[in-house]
């Protein structure tokens, strides 16, 4: 590994522009991501989130502007950037013909790590895939495939991880599993940049949230800062009906270790203070 620890933000993006033919996807994007934080890029479909992630992970070159990842310029020092990152794209990047374990061993070998087999077994255990480890990844469910995909991204402990819409298409339980993984990563000092179109996902996970709209960042701040952009909330008491997600999770039971509050308390007759924005 040639990466050395560098000071400054984990990711710095300045004036990035990108167009495809006459379609301006990114028109001057600026933001910084602090080390060890979770940064969410929020935007609807077509906002340019994936294009930005592809530029930051050296898959695509920007037309203008500059970006550094882990202190390395993405255009000039792409090789060093690749040593410092891992990308989990929108579509689970697993080899469907290989087994789960073989997928992990493959990535460990390509990262030139010692004892790929032990690394693979460890990750299979961490992501509850040990039993499925010797089955072809093509037979996995969407949630298992996504877990395997994220596990492959953790090999070699890259300091920065890009997650492009990590929970799109997952069932609620699998989504909570992914959230726990992301929180655990940040707790260990990994910088996470994730894109999402789910507002609650950004709210749950991110230290900072940037809203990407029509190719530029229109707002960037903590959740509290973003909430202050609207007139102060009035407090009203409303009976909280259980959401279908609460019902689903309560019925299927097991939701993992930390986040099963919704399932354990009887959600039906709770009354909580809910924020309601004045119209």
């Amino acid at each position: 590994m040639t990466t050395q620890q560098t000071l400054g933000p984990a990711i710095r993006v300045q004036g990035i522009e990108k167009s495809f033919k006459d379609l301006n996807v990114l028109r001057g994007v600026d933001f910084e991501v602090a080390r060890g934080s979770i940064f969410a890029l929020l935007g609807s479909n077509g906002a340019g989130k994936t294009t930005l992630v592809r530029i930051l992970s050296t898959l695509l070159k920007a037309d203008a502007g500059a970006a550094t990842v882990h202190g390395f310029d993405v255009a000039a020092m792409a090789g060093d950037v690749r040593e410092s990152i891992s990308l989990t794209g929108q579509f689970a990047a697993v080899d469907e013909v290989l087994t789960g374990r073989e997928n992990l061993v493959l990535v460990a070998k390509l990262r030139h790590l010692k004892d790929p087999g032990a690394i693979a077994d460890d990750l299979l255990a961490r992501f509850s895939l040990t039993e499925a480890g010797n089955r072809r990844a093509g037979t996995y469910s969407g949630g298992m495939r996504r877990r395997l995909d994220i596990a492959m991204s953790l090999i070699g402990n890259p300091p920065i991880i890009f997650l492009d819409e990590p929970t799109t298409g997952l069932d609620p339980q699998a989504r909570i599993d992914v959230w726990q993984t992301v929180k655990a990563l940040a707790a260990n000092g990994t910088t996470v940049l994730l894109t999402t179109q789910y507002l609650d996902e950004a709210e749950q996970l991110a230290d900072r949230i940037a809203i990407l709209h029509k190719g530029t960042i229109i707002r960037n701040g903590t959740l509290a800062e973003l909430k202050q952009l609207l007139p102060p909330a009035t407090v009203e008491y409303v009976e909280k009906q259980p959401s279908l997600e609460d019902v689903f999770l309560a019925l299927v039971g097991d939701t993992g270790d930390e986040s099963n509050g919704a399932a354990e308390t009887s959600a039906a007759d709770r009354t909580v203070a809910a924020r309601k924005e004045p119209r």
Binding site: T58, G79, R82, I85, F91, A93, D95, V107, L110, R111
Partner: peptide, 13 residues
């Protein structure tokens, strides 16, 4: 078509 090509491209290989 799958994502594996992009995964390889984003890795230090």
């Amino acid at each position: 078509q799958g994502g594996i090509f992009e995964r390889f491209q984003s890795m230090p290989i």
